[in-house]
Simulated scan of single mutants.
Amino acid sequence: MSKAKGATSMRRLVGLFNTSLSSAANPPAAAAVVNSSKPIADPLKFKKLADRFKKSSESRRFRNYSKKVYSETVQRLASAKQFSLIDDILQHQKKYEDISQEGFVIRLMLLYGKAGMFEHAHKLFDEMPELNCQRTVNSLNALLSAYIHSKKFDGVGKLLEELTEKIGIEPNLVSYNTVIKAYCEMGSMDSAVSVIDTLEKKGLEPDIITFNTLLDGFFSRGQIADGEEIWGLMEKKNVVPDVRTYNTKLRGLVHERKISEAVEFWEEMKSKGIKPDIHSYNALITGYCNAGNLEQVMKWYGELRESFLPDRVTYVTVLPFLRKKNEFEMASEICKEAMDRRMLSGGAALVDELVKESRIEEAIQFVESGLSRSALRLKFP
């Protein structure tokens, strides 16, 4: 491409980008409807959001059938670090008779947990007798989960021990599985395995969740031999592995760059009647991306598409690999698809690579495709 033509193409690309930004800043009236998925920047609007939520809470139907709205509202406020408003709308729920129902309180504790407000969840648990709400092992487990969601892993085991003695609620298998999860997240694998002895002393038997949690803890850290021992114990206990169990080992083998062993294990998985899911395919695609094997990446990507639609993990794994391999045409098509399906926010990285490679016309074609251009953040030389 001549310098003059290149400069003209670059100006055209910049012009397209600026036009798209202008259009995004001045949308037509039909597009001006409030989109609940968009973040609110003005603190005053967060307050108005909380006030509207509290007003809606006056409806029993809203309280009983709008669990998704509860979750999304708390998530939006948490993303903006509006923790006082989260406490405001959840404390507001205490004025309704639902607060005497354990299931309703559990929902509130889990919402606190997902916002990282484990102390507030604990306070609500402590207040349950005052709220005329009976505490059972279910609310105890919800509190443990709130600690997990808040990433307060080091407090889970101690909390279970303290509350068991303090309020006399006997933990169940869910309780111990949650403690195992916390230890695995901390990397305290010896402590995690020791919980199996504890629950068996209580007359409980580990289930598939117990083993899947332990296997994920070992395999994700590359401790393949230790994971194999747990797998053997699982079989000894007559616990039948499921697709998640197999996926955990697949990811472990891929993590250790043992792709040939992962493929052999895939075949073993199928021979035992376990149907691979999208996570199984993503594991092998990741393995071949790590190995730099374009042919195998596209082979497994093609096989995935025969049974599933790619998910976000698929796209964020394949697209950078294709750009690295200079497979821009293929990357462009997959990126357009991902953006059409709202699985990715933009194609800035792809356009940047095309510009770096002086493939300006291809960059122009991509931007002209009309896909979320306002989401692109281009870096022009």
Rank of each mutant, 00 (worst) to 15 (best):
G346F: 01
C133I: 04
R305G: 12
C133T: 05
K123E: 13
G227A: 10
A338S: 07
S59D: 14
T314M: 08
R61A: 12
R60D: 12
K201M: 14
S9K: 11
R257H: 10
L304H: 07
L108R: 07
F104I: 06
I278W: 00
V367K: 04
V318E: 05
T210E: 01
S145W: 03
H122T: 08
N290D: 13
F328T: 04
S260T: 13
L159V: 05
R61V: 14
S194D: 15
M339F: 02
S79R: 13
A7N: 10
T317H: 02
A331G: 13
R305M: 14
P241A: 10
A262V: 10
G287Q: 01
T245W: 10
I169M: 13
R63M: 05
F17N: 09
A50D: 02
V367S: 04
Q296M: 14
K356R: 15
F219K: 00
I278G: 04
N282T: 01
A24L: 04
N212K: 05
V69Y: 02
M189G: 03
M343Y: 06
D190S: 13
Y288R: 01
L376D: 01
I259K: 10
K379E: 13
E303P: 05
E361T: 11
T314P: 08
Y147G: 01
R12P: 00
R342F: 05
D126N: 13
G113H: 07
I89A: 04
L160H: 01
C335T: 15
C289E: 06
L304I: 09
A50L: 04
R135D: 07
A182L: 08
G157D: 11
P241W: 10
Y315F: 15
M10G: 07
G370Q: 06
C133V: 04
S194E: 15
G116N: 11
F46A: 02
L108C: 03
E295P: 00
V33A: 14
M186Y: 03
E368A: 14
I274H: 11
Q93I: 00
R12C: 06
W231V: 10
S145V: 07
P27Q: 01
